[in-house]
Design a binder for these strands. Structure first.
Lengths: 207, 207
DNA sequence: ACATGAATTGAATCCAAGTTCATTTCTTTA
DNA sequence: TAAAGAAATGAACTTGGATTCAATTCATGT
């Protein structure tokens, strides 16, 4: 018997794993999934290409895990807002605003996480976290309907609509090229207004 | 002097070109951009792989042209609706409804045309046609504001929001797996309601 | 029918990444 | 310090698909 993992080594391994995941985040935030290659990630993590494959079975699974990790973090933030005190209306407003501000602050990353297709494993992971996001919004909308804050409506669809509107308005290609950042705060404000109106309003004119 | 193009040959060439473009549409509608390879397109067009390259300089440009063609067609339909008689409210409702119905009828194709990333040339072409779509909606919203149908708002952003909501609600991955087709008409109706409310409503409760 | 130029074909070539693996470097225990 | 087992390295391998091109077929005008 001559070798066994010591705790320190375990930590170093874990550390390296984390650094690789972190590197994915950084590279993807920079060039998106499209431009992110394993070699680049490895370099960003200060590791040789082959090492990546000691920690992850394939590019797809590595990237999927990175996405899940990151989306999970965002989701936690959003869920916390959704769970806070206040009317459904207020909480929805806060949730949308938080989502918007965070997304605008890191557009490329946000787009990759929310919308940019990639390897099948990544797409699958994204579908799951997307559903989770939608569920948070859906819950708020349902609450609001129950409380009489919002008119009755298809909450599931409305939640999807919110995510779509946020995506398109803030981080999609159209938003990308409408100038680099006309004014993050103003943009977030307008998007929030749009989203709230979409679920919370009644007809402007009697039809 | 022994050879010169005759009109018949010109027509055949044009025909072949068109058939290739049509084949792209069909293949993409089937497997999306991700799965669409030049060889498959060639086969669908009843042509050898190499022939494709006599008509188009590269896969990217071929697919981009196919997208532009198709999007242009959809755009014409939408623009016609937008130009018809009626209040801005009615025209916007019609435009959204038409968009929704057509999209649901060919989800995969619609998704590819609207959202699925592909070669850079394709993405560029999509950006252009997306902007054109957004412009139609923006115009209607602006009209509506001017006419007093809609409250003042950021029309550009609202237009993007509509497209986002439509995309997400009807043809995105979330919509994909919410059952194959819960009910196209009902879905279109709910999405239309959401979109109209988003731009046309006033706050549900006095804030 | 023949000569000439164009179009078509599809197998061979090329290329960009993802993945592997023989070699080297590091850690641990005796 | 030496032996043994892990982990890291990065150049070589592999592969899926786009692209090319020599050979072939087709059209035209004499």
């Amino acid at each position: 018997m001559a070798y066994r993992h010591t705790e320190r080594v375990q930590e170093q391994l874990q550390d390296k794993r984390d650094r690789i995941l972190q590197a994915v985040r950084s590279v993807v935030g920079d060039v998106g999934f499209r431009g992110a290659q394993v070699a680049t990630v490895a370099e960003a993590a200060g590791v040789a290409t082959g090492t990546v494959y000691r920690h992850f079975p394939s590019k797809g699974e590595l990237f999927a895990e990175a996405l899940t990790l990151n989306a999970g973090h965002e989701l936690a933030v959003l869920a916390a807002v959704a769970r806070s005190e206040g009317t459904a209306m207020d909480r929805l407003a806060d949730a949308v605003r938080v989502f918007a501000l965070r997304a605008v602050r890191a557009r490329r990353l946000a787009w990759a996480m929310i919308a940019e297709p990639a390897e099948p494993e990544v797409d699958a992971a994204r579908l799951a976290s997307r559903r989770a996001f939608a569920d948070v919004f859906e819950g708020l909308i349902t609450d609001g309907i129950a409380a009489g804050d919002f008119p009755p409506q298809n909450a599931r669809l409305a939640a999807a609509g919110l995510i779509g509107a946020l995506t398109e308005g803030l981080i999609g290609p159209l938003a990308q090229d409408a100038g680099p950042q006309p004014d993050a705060a103003a943009l977030a404000r307008d998007v929030t207004a749009f989203c709230l109106q979409a679920v919370s309003a009644r007809p402007y004119k009697e039809s």
